[in-house]
Protein backbone atom coordinates (compact mmCIF):
# COMPACT_ATOMS: atom_id res chain seq x y z
CA UNK A 1 0.00 0.00 0.00
CA UNK A 2 1.07 3.53 -0.59
CA UNK A 3 1.71 4.63 2.96
CA UNK A 4 1.36 8.34 2.33
CA UNK A 5 -2.35 8.98 2.72
CA UNK A 6 -4.00 12.16 1.49
CA UNK A 7 -4.16 14.83 4.17
CA UNK A 8 -6.61 13.88 6.84
CA UNK A 9 -6.47 10.11 7.00
CA UNK A 10 -3.18 8.57 8.11
CA UNK A 11 -2.16 4.95 8.43
CA UNK A 12 -2.49 5.38 12.19
CA UNK A 13 -6.14 6.28 11.61
CA UNK A 14 -6.59 3.11 9.63
CA UNK A 15 -5.16 1.01 12.46
CA UNK A 16 -7.34 2.78 14.99
CA UNK A 17 -10.30 2.19 12.70
CA UNK A 18 -9.54 -1.52 12.55
CA UNK A 19 -9.14 -1.67 16.33
CA UNK A 20 -12.33 0.27 17.01
CA UNK A 21 -10.47 3.08 18.75
CA UNK A 22 -11.85 6.05 16.81
CA UNK A 23 -14.60 8.38 17.88
CA UNK A 24 -17.88 7.84 16.04
CA UNK A 25 -17.31 11.02 14.11
CA UNK A 26 -13.79 10.17 13.03
CA UNK A 27 -14.86 6.65 12.19
CA UNK A 28 -17.44 7.98 9.77
CA UNK A 29 -14.80 10.19 8.13
CA UNK A 30 -12.45 7.27 7.69
CA UNK A 31 -15.27 5.15 6.28
CA UNK A 32 -16.04 7.84 3.71
CA UNK A 33 -12.38 8.07 2.79
CA UNK A 34 -12.12 4.28 2.45
CA UNK A 35 -15.08 4.26 0.08
CA UNK A 36 -12.98 6.26 -2.38
CA UNK A 37 -9.77 4.29 -1.79
CA UNK A 38 -10.40 0.67 -2.69
CA UNK A 39 -6.78 -0.38 -2.27
CA UNK A 40 -6.62 0.90 1.29
CA UNK A 41 -10.08 -0.50 1.92
CA UNK A 42 -8.98 -3.96 0.91
CA UNK A 43 -5.91 -3.74 3.12
CA UNK A 44 -8.08 -2.61 6.03
CA UNK A 45 -10.45 -5.50 5.38
CA UNK A 46 -7.45 -7.83 5.56
CA UNK A 47 -6.42 -6.39 8.93
CA UNK A 48 -9.95 -6.77 10.24
CA UNK A 49 -9.87 -10.40 9.24
CA UNK A 50 -6.47 -10.81 10.92
CA UNK A 51 -7.99 -9.38 14.09
CA UNK A 52 -10.93 -11.76 14.02
CA UNK A 53 -8.73 -14.77 13.40
CA UNK A 54 -6.14 -13.84 16.00
CA UNK A 55 -8.84 -13.28 18.61
CA UNK A 56 -10.45 -16.58 17.76
CA UNK A 57 -7.09 -18.30 17.93
CA UNK A 58 -6.40 -17.11 21.45
CA UNK A 59 -9.93 -16.98 22.77
CA UNK A 60 -10.02 -20.62 23.79
CA UNK A 61 -8.09 -20.06 27.02
CA UNK A 62 -10.20 -21.00 30.00
CA UNK A 63 -9.46 -21.01 33.74
CA UNK A 64 -7.87 -24.25 34.84
CA UNK A 65 -8.99 -26.35 37.76
CA UNK A 66 -5.81 -26.01 39.75
CA UNK A 67 -5.49 -22.27 39.35
CA UNK A 68 -7.15 -21.29 42.62
CA UNK A 69 -4.95 -23.63 44.65
CA UNK A 70 -1.85 -22.57 42.75
CA UNK A 71 -2.56 -18.92 43.40
CA UNK A 72 -3.13 -19.59 47.08
CA UNK A 73 0.21 -21.43 47.22
CA UNK A 74 1.97 -18.58 45.47
CA UNK A 75 0.38 -15.98 47.71
CA UNK A 76 1.40 -17.96 50.78
CA UNK A 77 4.87 -18.52 49.39
CA UNK A 78 4.50 -22.17 50.30
CA UNK A 79 6.91 -24.86 49.23
CA UNK A 80 4.35 -26.26 46.86
CA UNK A 81 4.40 -23.00 44.96
CA UNK A 82 7.90 -23.83 43.77
CA UNK A 83 6.62 -26.79 41.83
CA UNK A 84 6.55 -26.09 38.10
CA UNK A 85 3.07 -25.68 36.61
CA UNK A 86 4.47 -26.84 33.35
CA UNK A 87 5.58 -30.06 34.99
CA UNK A 88 9.19 -29.16 34.31
CA UNK A 89 11.95 -29.49 36.83
CA UNK A 90 12.54 -26.11 38.36
CA UNK A 91 15.62 -24.52 36.89
CA UNK A 92 17.61 -21.97 38.82
CA UNK A 93 15.57 -18.95 37.97
CA UNK A 94 17.11 -15.59 37.44
CA UNK A 95 13.60 -14.26 37.11
CA UNK A 96 13.67 -12.22 40.27
CA UNK A 97 16.73 -10.33 39.13
CA UNK A 98 15.31 -8.99 35.94
CA UNK A 99 11.84 -8.24 37.09
CA UNK A 100 11.55 -4.72 38.23
CA UNK A 101 13.17 -3.06 35.34
CA UNK A 102 9.65 -1.70 34.84
CA UNK A 103 9.55 1.49 32.87
CA UNK A 104 13.19 1.39 31.96
CA UNK A 105 12.11 2.67 28.58
CA UNK A 106 12.55 1.70 24.99
CA UNK A 107 16.31 1.59 25.34
CA UNK A 108 16.25 -1.77 26.98
CA UNK A 109 14.77 -3.39 23.94
CA UNK A 110 18.11 -3.17 22.27
CA UNK A 111 19.00 -4.73 19.00
CA UNK A 112 20.78 -7.60 20.68
CA UNK A 113 17.56 -9.08 22.02
CA UNK A 114 17.30 -12.00 19.70
CA UNK A 115 17.39 -13.30 16.20
CA UNK A 116 14.13 -14.00 14.44
CA UNK A 117 12.78 -17.44 15.33
CA UNK A 118 13.48 -20.20 12.89
CA UNK A 119 10.48 -21.04 10.87
CA UNK A 120 9.09 -24.43 11.71
CA UNK A 121 6.66 -25.80 9.24
CA UNK A 122 3.43 -27.03 10.59
CA UNK A 123 2.50 -30.40 9.22
CA UNK A 124 -0.15 -29.17 6.81
CA UNK A 125 2.03 -26.40 5.56
CA UNK A 126 4.65 -28.97 4.63
CA UNK A 127 2.47 -30.69 2.04
CA UNK A 128 2.73 -28.34 -0.95
CA UNK A 129 6.41 -27.71 -0.30
CA UNK A 130 7.22 -31.41 -0.11
CA UNK A 131 5.17 -32.02 -3.26
CA UNK A 132 7.02 -29.33 -5.15
CA UNK A 133 10.40 -30.64 -4.02
CA UNK A 134 9.53 -34.21 -5.03
CA UNK A 135 8.24 -32.99 -8.35
CA UNK A 136 11.42 -31.06 -9.07
CA UNK A 137 13.71 -33.89 -8.02
CA UNK A 138 12.05 -36.86 -9.67
CA UNK A 139 10.55 -35.50 -12.88
CA UNK A 140 14.08 -34.36 -13.87
CA UNK A 141 15.27 -37.96 -13.75
CA UNK A 142 15.59 -39.34 -17.24
CA UNK A 143 16.65 -42.91 -16.58
CA UNK A 144 15.15 -43.63 -13.14
CA UNK A 145 12.15 -41.40 -12.60
CA UNK A 146 10.29 -44.17 -10.74
CA UNK A 147 11.12 -47.23 -8.68
CA UNK A 148 8.26 -49.38 -9.95
CA UNK A 149 6.94 -48.91 -13.47
CA UNK A 150 3.37 -48.71 -14.71
CA UNK A 151 3.72 -52.21 -16.16
CA UNK A 152 3.40 -53.45 -12.55
CA UNK A 153 0.62 -51.07 -11.57
CA UNK A 154 -1.27 -53.47 -9.29
CA UNK A 155 1.90 -54.30 -7.37
CA UNK A 156 2.87 -50.60 -7.22
CA UNK A 157 -0.45 -49.51 -5.77
CA UNK A 158 -0.59 -52.35 -3.25
CA UNK A 159 2.98 -51.73 -2.12
CA UNK A 160 2.56 -47.96 -1.70
CA UNK A 161 -0.80 -48.41 0.05
CA UNK A 162 0.81 -50.76 2.52
CA UNK A 163 3.73 -48.48 3.26
CA UNK A 164 1.52 -45.40 3.51
CA UNK A 165 -0.94 -47.20 5.77
CA UNK A 166 -3.92 -46.08 3.64
CA UNK A 167 -5.45 -47.43 0.48
CA UNK A 168 -4.49 -45.37 -2.53
CA UNK A 169 -5.22 -45.74 -6.22
CA UNK A 170 -3.56 -44.53 -9.40
CA UNK A 171 -6.13 -42.26 -11.05
CA UNK A 172 -6.73 -42.69 -14.76
CA UNK A 173 -5.76 -39.42 -16.46
CA UNK A 174 -5.91 -40.59 -20.09
CA UNK A 175 -8.80 -38.19 -20.80
CA UNK A 176 -6.27 -35.39 -20.19
CA UNK A 177 -3.61 -37.13 -22.25
CA UNK A 178 -1.48 -38.32 -19.31
CA UNK A 179 -0.49 -41.91 -18.66
CA UNK A 180 1.05 -43.44 -15.56
CA UNK A 181 4.83 -43.77 -15.63
CA UNK A 182 5.11 -45.45 -12.25
CA UNK A 183 5.76 -44.54 -8.66
CA UNK A 184 8.13 -44.52 -5.74
CA UNK A 185 8.29 -44.41 -2.01
CA UNK A 186 9.32 -40.99 -0.66
CA UNK A 187 9.92 -39.65 2.84
CA UNK A 188 7.29 -37.22 4.05
CA UNK A 189 7.74 -35.75 7.51
CA UNK A 190 9.84 -38.74 8.56
CA UNK A 191 7.16 -41.20 7.48
CA UNK A 192 6.65 -43.11 4.26
CA UNK A 193 4.87 -41.16 1.56
CA UNK A 194 4.10 -42.11 -2.01
CA UNK A 195 4.68 -40.44 -5.36
CA UNK A 196 3.04 -41.37 -8.65
CA UNK A 197 4.30 -39.90 -11.90
CA UNK A 198 2.38 -39.28 -15.12
CA UNK A 199 3.57 -38.19 -18.54
CA UNK A 200 1.93 -37.07 -21.79
CA UNK A 201 2.91 -37.36 -25.44
CA UNK A 202 4.91 -34.14 -25.28
CA UNK A 203 6.97 -35.49 -22.40
CA UNK A 204 5.37 -33.16 -19.83
CA UNK A 205 5.22 -34.76 -16.42
CA UNK A 206 2.95 -34.51 -13.39
CA UNK A 207 3.36 -35.94 -9.93
CA UNK A 208 0.68 -36.99 -7.48
CA UNK A 209 1.99 -37.11 -3.94
CA UNK A 210 0.38 -38.87 -0.98
CA UNK A 211 1.43 -38.00 2.55
CA UNK A 212 0.19 -39.26 5.85
CA UNK A 213 -1.73 -36.68 7.88
CA UNK A 214 -1.46 -37.49 11.56
CA UNK A 215 -3.95 -34.85 12.58
CA UNK A 216 -6.73 -36.45 10.59
CA UNK A 217 -8.08 -33.12 9.45
CA UNK A 218 -9.85 -32.15 6.29
CA UNK A 219 -9.18 -29.02 4.30
CA UNK A 220 -10.51 -27.25 1.26
CA UNK A 221 -8.96 -27.60 -2.15
CA UNK A 222 -5.88 -25.37 -2.54
CA UNK A 223 -3.66 -24.03 -5.22
CA UNK A 224 -0.11 -22.86 -4.71
CA UNK A 225 2.29 -21.59 -7.28
CA UNK A 226 6.03 -21.24 -6.73
CA UNK A 227 8.23 -20.46 -9.68
CA UNK A 228 6.96 -22.50 -12.61
CA UNK A 229 5.62 -25.28 -10.47
CA UNK A 230 1.93 -25.28 -9.67
CA UNK A 231 0.49 -27.49 -6.99
CA UNK A 232 -3.06 -28.36 -6.13
CA UNK A 233 -3.51 -30.00 -2.78
CA UNK A 234 -6.08 -31.02 -0.23
CA UNK A 235 -6.32 -33.18 2.81
CA UNK A 236 -8.93 -35.79 3.41
CA UNK A 237 -8.69 -37.30 6.86
CA UNK A 238 -5.58 -39.46 7.17
CA UNK A 239 -4.08 -38.64 3.76
CA UNK A 240 -2.92 -35.42 2.15
CA UNK A 241 -2.85 -35.25 -1.66
CA UNK A 242 -0.83 -32.90 -3.84
CA UNK A 243 -0.63 -32.71 -7.62
CA UNK A 244 2.26 -30.76 -9.10
CA UNK A 245 3.16 -29.85 -12.62
CA UNK A 246 4.46 -27.15 -14.89
CA UNK A 247 1.28 -26.84 -16.88
CA UNK A 248 -1.28 -24.08 -16.76
CA UNK A 249 -3.53 -23.78 -13.81
CA UNK A 250 -6.79 -24.57 -15.56
CA UNK A 251 -5.49 -27.84 -16.90
CA UNK A 252 -3.99 -28.75 -13.58
CA UNK A 253 -7.25 -27.99 -11.88
CA UNK A 254 -9.18 -30.22 -14.31
CA UNK A 255 -6.70 -32.99 -13.58
CA UNK A 256 -7.04 -32.41 -9.85
CA UNK A 257 -10.81 -32.68 -10.15
CA UNK A 258 -10.41 -36.04 -11.87
CA UNK A 259 -8.00 -37.28 -9.21
CA UNK A 260 -10.24 -36.07 -6.42
CA UNK A 261 -13.19 -37.98 -7.87
CA UNK A 262 -11.20 -41.15 -8.41
CA UNK A 263 -9.42 -41.19 -5.05
Amino acid sequence: MNRTQPPGVTEDDLHAYVDGLLSAERQAEVERWLAGNPQAASEVAGWQQQNRHIRALFSAEVPQEDDARRLADLAAGSARARRRWSGRVLAASAAGLVLFSLGAGAGMLGARLLEPPARTLASLEALPEAARASYLIYTREVRHPVEVGADQEAHLVAWLSKRLGSEIAAPDLTSEGFHLVGGRLIPYRDKPGALLMYENEKGERLTLMFGRNEQNTTTGFRFESTGNVQTFYWIDGPVGYAISGEIDRERLQRISDICYRQL
Partner: peptide
Protein backbone atom coordinates in the same frame (compact mmCIF):
# COMPACT_ATOMS: atom_id res chain seq x y z
CA UNK B 1 -0.30 -25.57 16.78
CA UNK B 2 -2.73 -28.20 17.88
CA UNK B 3 -1.40 -28.99 21.33
CA UNK B 4 -0.47 -25.49 22.37
CA UNK B 5 -3.52 -23.51 21.53
CA UNK B 6 -6.11 -24.54 24.06
CA UNK B 7 -8.84 -25.71 21.72
CA UNK B 8 -9.52 -25.64 18.02
CA UNK B 9 -10.32 -22.05 17.26
CA UNK B 10 -9.45 -19.41 14.75
CA UNK B 11 -9.87 -19.92 11.06
CA UNK B 12 -11.88 -23.06 10.51
CA UNK B 13 -9.56 -24.45 7.94
CA UNK B 14 -6.53 -26.00 9.65
CA UNK B 15 -4.27 -24.83 6.84
CA UNK B 16 -5.32 -21.23 7.43
CA UNK B 17 -4.82 -21.72 11.13
CA UNK B 18 -1.32 -23.06 10.70
CA UNK B 19 -0.40 -20.29 8.33
CA UNK B 20 -1.64 -17.65 10.73
CA UNK B 21 0.26 -19.22 13.59
CA UNK B 22 3.40 -19.42 11.45
CA UNK B 23 2.96 -15.77 10.49
CA UNK B 24 2.58 -14.73 14.13
CA UNK B 25 5.64 -16.79 15.02
CA UNK B 26 7.70 -14.87 12.49
CA UNK B 27 7.04 -11.53 14.19
CA UNK B 28 9.62 -10.13 16.56
CA UNK B 29 8.66 -10.47 20.25
CA UNK B 30 8.22 -6.69 20.40
Amino acid sequence: TAGDIAAPAGPDDPLERDRLIAAINLLSPE
